[in-house]
């Protein structure tokens, strides 16, 4: 079963910026209610996009450098990266379809 990837400040460059496929990064924290609310959605997306895109989570308590450099001021924030660049951004808990459509879009442009 495909699972999301847990990333850190240290692995961000390799796992996200240098990834061959698009990457969805969920910036979250354990104490954030809406983050918990979308957690199952993130897990489902990891499964559905397995092999086409990478779905990753970064804990903003344990990692501060990357969230700071991307000016994350609200969680959950979802960033979609392609070829090292942010191509889309979602702030707050939204419906799964909205996230899936944006990620699908990034995958389609990539192919």
């Amino acid at each position: 079963m495909a699972k999301y990837k847990t990333i850190t400040d240290a692995t961000f460059k390799t796992d996200v910026l240098e990834s061959d496929s698009p990457v969805l990064v969920d910036f979250w924290a354990t104490w954030c209610g809406p983050c918990r609310a979308i957690a199952p959605v993130i897990e489902e997306l990891a499964e559905e996009f397995d092999g086409r895109a990478v779905v990753a989570k970064m804990d903003v308590d344990e990692n501060q450098t990357v969230p700071m450099s991307y000016n994350i001021r609200s969680i959950p924030t979802l960033l979609i990266f392609k070829d090292g660049q942010v191509v889309d951004q979602i702030t707050g808990a939204v419906r799964k379809k909205i996230i899936a459509d944006k990620l699908e879009n990034a995958v389609a442009q990539h192919a």
């Binding site: 104490w31 209610g33 001021r73 609200s74 969680i75 924030t77 702030t91 707050g92």
Partner: peptide, 17 residues
């Protein structure tokens, strides 16, 4: 500026400030 300092959830975003 929602998500860039504007928030309706202090418990979500307070720690960034």
């Amino acid at each position: 500026l929602l998500g860039y300092g504007v928030s309706a959830c202090a418990t979500c975003d307070g720690a960034f400030f």
